[in-house]
Amino acid sequence: MRAVVQRVTTGNHRIMSRKTYSTEYKAKIALEAIQGLKTINKIATTHGLHPTQITQWKKQALESLPDAFSRKRQRQQQDQTALTGELYQQIGQLKWLKKKLVLPVVAKRLLIDRDHPDLSLQRQCELIGLNRSSWYYQAARESPENERLMALIDQQFTDTPFYGVRRMTAWLRTQGEPVNPKRVRRLMRKMGLMAIYPKPKLSLPGDTPRRFPYLLNDYAITQPNQVWSTDITYIRLSQGFIYLVAIIDWFSRYVLDWQVSNTMDVQFCLDNLDNALQTGQPHIFNSDQGAQFTSLAFTQRLEQAGIGISHDGKGRAYDNIFVERPWRSVKYEEVYIKSYTSVPEAIQNLNAYFQFYNQERLHQSLDYRPPALIHFQ
């Protein structure tokens, strides 16, 4: 059964209506999202679900996959579930502790287990101090109008990456778009766009970020594989959007590997890093302070390989400028020309473009030679 609709009524008034999805159904949808052949919006439209719901199921599936291959870990997980249930009971007995559980609503929502065998959703919400309406709330998906505005913002940002919210708002108004800064700010954050001028926050770190100093001041780069750099950009499709991450060698401008994802999670960045490390290893790896690159999983992977970690400093807008330049090239020379209609089409065309970019495209900064010639000479 895909879903069960439960309703509680009193007299002629309905108090609550919600759907309960089976574990098999959630696993099926999560697998479809993990495959990455469709955007989250496309999957949501096909199955009549909300994009946020699918994103959560995908995250839960990725986090639980390692445990699925270890019986020992499964037993530990069962023990942890029992311990959690006992803890819930203790929290229920010590009401004052609930008042001290100060967490954002998003974090509290992640603590709720819809399929908990002993505790109802109502009881779990009571124990962690979460209003049930906050659990059931689902934000409206992006409208076609907002997706059209995101396409305009993306193209203008590629031209003028120093445009922040105010300038982008002013530019949209000159194009006849009646928008306010609040709307533009929300859309730019959703797209992962941050203006490259000095300001207090260049990127949004994760909940427990690991920050490292900027190591490239007065650092002479004279050969390939001294410094690699990475960044994430937004790629628009006819229905929805995807994210593109790439790793580039600073000296040769060679794109070592790239990956796309329908969600901006850390896993596709880790896949990108693992594939790049199969071709070589840099002395220093530089990135911005985004949540993916300051995460424990990503920084540990670099430390295990003995690679120095460098993060852009606050107010240093151009620390990672070398990886910003290929984004302009790939969008104007490929993405905007072809207007992809699906994720497989985007992957196929991006693959052809990056082969051209590395093997044939002449770079002025390389004395009109292709990056592959410099990187492997």
Rank of each mutant, 00 (worst) to 15 (best):
Q76G: 06
S339N: 13
S203H: 14
D312K: 12
A305N: 14
L215F: 04
L350P: 06
A68M: 15
T169E: 11
I242Q: 05
L270E: 14
E360M: 03
Y368G: 04
R186C: 10
T299M: 07
D113R: 10
D113E: 14
Q122P: 05
T20R: 11
I235A: 09
D288H: 03
M150I: 04
I247D: 05
H283C: 09
K95I: 02
F376C: 00
I309D: 10
Q223P: 00
K95P: 14
L373G: 00
T39C: 02
Q76T: 02
R325N: 10
S261P: 08
R183C: 09
T158F: 01
F354Y: 13
G92T: 07
S287K: 02
M168W: 03
N349L: 06
K38Y: 13
L83W: 05
Q124D: 11
K98L: 09
W250V: 13
E345Q: 09
L83E: 12
A27H: 14
W135G: 09
Q278T: 14
L110K: 12
P178Y: 04
T55L: 03
I40T: 14
S22H: 09
Y368N: 09
E324F: 01
Y332I: 01
L130P: 14
P200C: 01
S261V: 00
L87P: 08
R301S: 12
N275L: 06
L94Q: 13
L87T: 12
V343D: 05
G206V: 01
L87D: 01
D319R: 00
N217C: 05
N131M: 06
V245H: 08
L350A: 08
P181R: 10
A246F: 09
Q138E: 15
K19H: 11
R7E: 12
S238F: 00
N217D: 12
L244H: 04
A317N: 00
P51R: 07
Q223W: 02
Q304H: 10
K314W: 02
R253F: 04
P205W: 01
T158W: 01
N217V: 07
K38L: 11
F212G: 12
P178Q: 12
M191N: 05
Y368V: 00
I374A: 01
D115N: 15
R211K: 03
L94S: 08
L366M: 05
G85R: 12
V179C: 08
W250E: 07
F162P: 07
I29W: 07
G315W: 04
S310G: 03
N225Y: 02
Y219P: 03
D218R: 06
K59V: 00
P344E: 07
I337G: 00
L83T: 10
A107Y: 08
G176K: 06
H311R: 05
L62Y: 02
F293W: 11
H13Y: 14
E63Q: 12
L94D: 11
V106T: 14
W258R: 02
S329C: 08
Y88D: 03
L216A: 07
Y214T: 04
A44M: 00
Y332N: 15
M188Q: 05
Q259M: 05
S133N: 13
R236Q: 12
P209T: 05
R361E: 09
R186P: 05
N349F: 07
Q281D: 04
D257C: 10
S22E: 13
P144M: 06
L152Y: 07
Q259T: 11
R236W: 08
R236E: 15
F212Q: 04
